[in-house]
Design a protein around this nucleic acid. Structure first.
Length: 518
RNA sequence: GGCCUCGUAGCCAAGUGGUAAGGCAACGGUUUGCAAAACCGUCAUUCCCCGGUUCGAAUCCGGGCGAGGCCUCCA
């Protein structure tokens, strides 16, 4: 089955319009950098990063652009509150955003254009729109004329007439129609000079929608292959982008429109809520990362199909005993299957999971029959509109199968030589690594699980483990009726129980004892 | 009011015409000095309800009930 992608514009899955080897352009609306990112801000980046990874795996040449809105009302307001400047605030919050992307292994973004660096291009596009009669200047503002756009509303199925009936809060008397939207906003009294730009219509700054149109066109051309963003941006943002871009260029703006679902959660009473600053139930990425790894956050997002709302489950967010929502706790527990497996690969093969040699690119790869079905199922899911939830299920199946193999053939037992089974295991492990890689999951144990790399901690742990190992050897050697046997085991159990109370789990294996911080 | 989603086990979730993936939790078992981990097994005769189409429906159509998003520069 070839790749199918759902487009909001047609409201159905369509065969992807490009051939492997082709260049693919992708534009996704990015953040307004005025506050630290919360986990909801990561949903889009994780999904589209995964889209790019899969397209790249299929041999497409993907160029991905995400804009950074570094001038707007919220930035101006927030900078004033913090007694700082808009550029300083924007720079700081952009750094925060980049840090979050890195933590979630979002590595595929090729360009991050800043709105303030492309004002010239926006002015050019606005001028074109005025020349073509699609926009008009009024008192220092410029508005897009919705009535001159015959197919306005086609993305979201909106009727411009209906918009008039709606209660628009900011009905400016400069607008000809209530549905018209600002392309250029004149500077207001008291606004700092740094948010004022020169234009043919006087000092001011660009409207929100025009920045995406201008920057996407500049960096990727008139027609995008994929335009993405959150479901909440469908209207008015994407509708307006589409209208102004097609009016300016006369060409189709985007072949495929992809919209990701939003996070949802429920309070302690079980009532559904959205994450919003006004409710106080915002989970910043920084805070979430204190409790779960970036891998887990990413895994959590990818368990659900990207077009569905992502359910965080119940969260008593005011209670310090429930620092993260139930859904994340559950994802954390589930993901340990993978991190433990990755560690096991190290024990079986003698090579750390992350250091496994690269697999030749698809096409050249000779997948043995043993795992061909796994790869096929994985691809079928991903080909079906990037069904990452189904793909994750395949990954679980594969890991279970390899664990069974390792159990049955005793692959961790150094005395049981079994080169054939080991080779089979190793090949499966490579596939796990590759498939997880397509999803952007590293499967690395979080640093915190190993004591944060603290040498003193690991030294002390090794001391305890060695001491305990001596006690265990003594105890095992003691005769059944020797009271010392029980006494010694009581001591080894005491160490383990006390460590557990501190959040450290000991695991005794044939090859020795390992430890982890929960 | 208009536009658009969604309703699958205690919880999350895939499946959109051929007889219900996967995960969390729970409970048995193997293994272990005992644990942990891993593995095996149990856990929805049924997919919100009522009709219809069909040889066949969780999937399509109509109606109802319930939840949510957007129409306000919220990702």
């Amino acid at each position: 089955m070839a790749l199918q992608v759902y487009s909001t514009l047609s409201r159905k899955k369509e065969a992807f319009h490009k051939e492997p080897g082709d260049r693919v352009t992708m534009y996704v609306c990015g953040p307004t950098v005025y506050k630290p990112s919360h986990i909801g801000h990561m949903v889009g980046p994780v999904i589209f990063d995964t889209v790019k990874r899969y397209l790249t795996y299929l041999d497409y040449q993907v160029t991905w652009v995400v804009n950074v809105t570094d001038v707007d009302d919220k930035l101006i307001g927030r900078a004033k509150e913090l007694n700082t400047t808009v550029p300083e605030l924007a720079a700081k919050m952009t750094e925060d955003y980049f840090g979050c992307l890195k933590a979630l292994n979002v590595t595929g973004i090729d360009h991050f254009p800043r709105a303030t660096e492309h004002v010239g291009g926006m002015i050019l596009m606005i001028s074109t729109l005025i020349e073509k009669g699609h926009a008009y200047a009024a008192g220092g503002d410029v508005y897009f004329d919705v009535s001159r756009d015959a197919d306005y509303g086609k993305l979201c199925n909106r009727d411009p007439e209906q918009l008039e009936a709606g209660s628009r809060i900011e009905v400016s008397d400069r607008k000809r129609n209530p549905g018209d939207f600002a392309l250029w906003k004149s500077a207001k009294p008291g606004e700092p000079a740094e948010v004022q730009f020169d234009s043919p219509w006087g000092k001011g700054r660009p409207g929100w929608h025009i920045e995406c149109s201008a920057m996407a066109t500049k960096l990727l051309g008139d027609t995008l292959d994929i335009h993405g963003g959150g479901l909440d941006l469908q209207f008015p943002h994407h509708e307006n982008e589409l209208a102004q871009s097609e009016s300016a260029t006369g060409k189709e703006f985007a072949r495929v429109w992809m919209h990701n679902g939003l996070l949802k959660l429920r309070d302690k009473e079980g009532k559904e809520d959205k994450m919003a600053g006004s409710k106080g139930n915002v989970l910043n990425v920084d805070r979430a990362l204190k409790h779960v790894s970036g891998d887990v956050l990413r895994f959590f997002i990818l368990q659900t199909h990207y077009r569905s709302p992502i359910d965080l489950g119940n969260w008593d967010w005011e209670n310090p005993n429930t620092p993260i929502p139930a859904g994340l706790e559950s994802a954390k527990a589930a993901f340990e299957t993978f991190t433990r497996f990755a560690e096991r690969v190290g024990r079986v093969t003698g090579t750390a999971f992350a250091q496994l040699p690269p697999t030749p690119p698809p096409g050249n790869a000779t997948m043995t029959l043993a795992y061909a079905d796994v790869l096929r199922r994985f691809q079928e899911h991903m080909d079906d509109d990037f069904n990452t939830g189904g793909a994750v299920g395949v990954l679980f199946d594969l890991v279970k199968r390899l664990n069974r193999l390792a159990d049955e053939k005793k692959l961790e037992d150094p005395t049981a030589a079994n080169p054939g089974a080991k080779a089979e295991f190793r090949e499966g492990a490579l596939l796990v690594r590759d498939l997880a890689g397509i999803l952007g999951l590293t499967l690395a144990a979080p640093a915190a699980a190993l004591g944060g790399g603290d040498e003193l901690v690991s030294g002390l742990m090794q001391l305890l483990i060695d001491l305990r190992a001596n006690l265990r050897t003594e105890a095992k050697g003691a005769a059944k009726d020797n009271p010392l046997k029980a006494a010694l085991f009581a001591q080894t159990d005491l160490i383990r129980t006390r460590l557990a109370a501190l959040g450290v789990t000991l695991e005794d294996r044939a090859t020795g004892t390992t430890w982890r911080v929960n």
